[in-house]
C-alpha cells in the first residue's frame, strides 16, 4: 500500500504537469482577486502576517485617543445605541419612541435608565460591547409615555376530523418609551478591575 501511493502520485503528476502552466496563472489570478474581494476582519492573524504587538498597541492607542478627543470636545455628534430591553434588541437614538411588548412593570411618567448597552456608535466611531459595554460608560435615559394594549389578536386552533375548533382572542400589553438622552460619560478603555459589585446585594 505504501508503495502504491508514490506510484499513483507519479501518474497524477504526469497529468498535472501538462496543465501546470495553466494552473499557475490561475492561482496567481485567484491571489490577486482575493486581495481585492476579501479582507479578513477577524482577530486571528493570517498565516503570512507578522504581528508586531507594540505596533498594534500604538495604533489602537492612537484610535482610542482620537475618539477620546472627540468626546472631550463634544464633537461626536449624534449617538446611537443598541440596547437589550425586555428580551429584544432595539437600535435607538435620541428622541426615538420604542414599544416594549409584554408585561413590564414601569408605569407612566417614570424615568428609567437603560443599562444593557450592546453597542454605542457615532458617525465616526463605534464602541462594541463583549457582550455588553462596561457599566457606567454610557448613560441612556428614557421616559415611559404610554401603556396600552395591542390590537386584538386571534389564536385559531383546529384538529382535522375531530370536530374541534377554538378561537382565542388576546391582547398584549404595550409600553411606549421615549429615549431622552444617550451620552458617553465614563472613561474610555479603562474598565474597572472588578465589575458587577455595585449592584450586587450581599
Amino acid at each position: 500500500m505504501a508503495s502504491l501511493i508514490p506510484k499513483l502520485l507519479n501518474n497524477f503528476s504526469r497529468l498535472a504537469l501538462q496543465n501546470s502552466k495553466k494552473l499557475n496563472t490561475r492561482s496567481a489570478q485567484v491571489e490577486k482577486l482575493s486581495s481585492i474581494l476579501t479582507k479578513c476582519y477577524g482577530t486571528q492573524a493570517t498565516p503570512y502576517e507578522i504581528i508586531d504587538e507594540e505596533k498594534d498597541n500604538k495604533k489602537s492607542d492612537e484610535i482610542i485617543q482620537k475618539v477620546q478627543s472627540q468626546l472631550t470636545e463634544s464633537k461626536e455628534g449624534r449617538l446611537f445605541a443598541i440596547v437589550h430591553l425586555a428580551g429584544k434588541q432595539f437600535r435607538i437614538t435620541e428622541g426615538d419612541v420604542v414599544v416594549v411588548e409584554g408585561y413590564w412593570p414601569p408605569s407612566c411618567g417614570e424615568r428609567i435608565s437603560l443599562d444593557k448597552v450592546l453597542l454605542v456608535g457615532a458617525s465616526d466611531f463605534t464602541l462594541i460591547g463583549r457582550p455588553v459595554v462596561q457599566n457606567g460608560l454610557v448613560n441612556i435615559e428614557a421616559t415611559v409615555i404610554e401603556k396600552t394594549l395591542s390590537h386584538t389578536k386571534t389564536h385559531f386552533r383546529k384538529k382535522r376530523r375531530k370536530q374541534y375548533m377554538r378561537i382565542h382572542f388576546y391582547k398584549i400589553p404595550q409600553t411606549h418609551l421615549r429615549i431622552n438622552r444617550i451620552s458617553i460619560v465614563g472613561e474610555l478603555n479603562n474598565p474597572p478591575e472588578v465589575s458587577g459589585l455595585e449592584k450586587a446585594i450581599f
Binding site: G77, R78, L79, F80, F90, R91, I92, T93, G95, D96, V97, V98, V99, E101, G121, A122, S123, T126, S150, H151, Q174
Partner: peptide, 14 residues
C-alpha cells in the same frame, strides 16, 4: 394595528 414597534427620525447615523 401598529406596523412598526419603533419610531425614529434618524434611521441611520453612520
Amino acid at each position: 394595528r401598529l406596523r412598526k414597534l419603533i419610531h425614529t427620525d434618524f434611521p441611520s447615523v453612520q
